[in-house]
Design a protein around this nucleic acid. Structure first.
Lengths: 133, 133
DNA sequence: TAGATTATAATAATCATTATTATTTAGAAG
DNA sequence: CTTCTAAATAATAATGATTATTATAATCTA
């Protein structure tokens, strides 16, 4: 519990039960959550929470760099606990969403060499995973 | 004009004036278009076209590989004529959206070596472009 | 050229997300 | 420990992109 409080304090975010609950859901489950799914999880311990609040909190945590947002699926935004630069692969057969570790990236380096500042990089790969193939 | 007809025929798509018009907008302008923008352009030559039809046509052309869809902005889907694998960079200052040519990608190759089939790869880079820096 | 199939236009419906606002709460100061 | 003010939450309405529906119109095959 203390780790969540510490994390929020470090970012100068007010401590509220709702924020701690949302952070706990993401940090305790290394999956990718839609806002609705986070809402569903948080409701178990916190039945009175509002969906709008979950939206607000997720956006705040994202701004502060405590969680990361991805949009590999067209319909809804997903969130995850991993905030280091990495990519994602979505299997069109089984629908599984895999994390992919970052590797040296020529396109990224070329951009930097050319004088641009890259603050974020999201690689979205689509195809068929080895299990489904 | 003939090139659009040929392209549709090759994909076994029925030839309609609306489809030709949409394809022409994207193939004649090497920019990134939202659906609304395509709608706006097509209306100039084709005032009676319906927005819903533009949505349907863009989805069809995407399915058939004649255009490409990107979702680097959170609010709306964009479309472009380039269908070869390449990436995008969005400057958070000026809002310009740049194409980035594909380079040898270690993460991509590692996925393939591991037995997965990569059919599509979208790299979205965010930051500050050299002009704005 | 006719006729079955498919596409379009118009519009309603959906649904994720955002805005609004009254109420409640966190946390600083005394 | 209480008071107070700024900020957060809950409830709900509004927005806006996208999708569904359906009657009409157009394509293209035979």
């Amino acid at each position: 519990m203390e780790q969540y409080v510490e994390a929020l304090k470090k970012q100068k975010i007010r401590i509220t039960p709702q924020r701690l609950a949302v952070l706990r859901v993401l940090w305790n489950n290394h999956r990718h959550f839609s806002t609705e799914e986070v809402y569903g999880e948080v409701k178990k311990d916190f039945p009175a929470i509002s969906l709008a609040t979950v939206y607000t909190i997720l956006d705040l945590l994202k701004q502060k760099g405590l969680i990361r947002e991805l949009r590999i699926k067209s319909d809804k935004t997903l969130f995850e606990a991993r905030v280091d630069m990495h990519h994602h692969f979505l299997c069109r057969d089984c629908g599984t969403l895999f994390d992919i570790d970052m590797k040296p990236c020529a396109a990224l380096e070329a951009m930097a060499v050319d004088g641009n500042v890259i603050e974020e990089a999201h690689g979205y790969f689509y195809g068929v995973c080895k299990k489904c193939k």
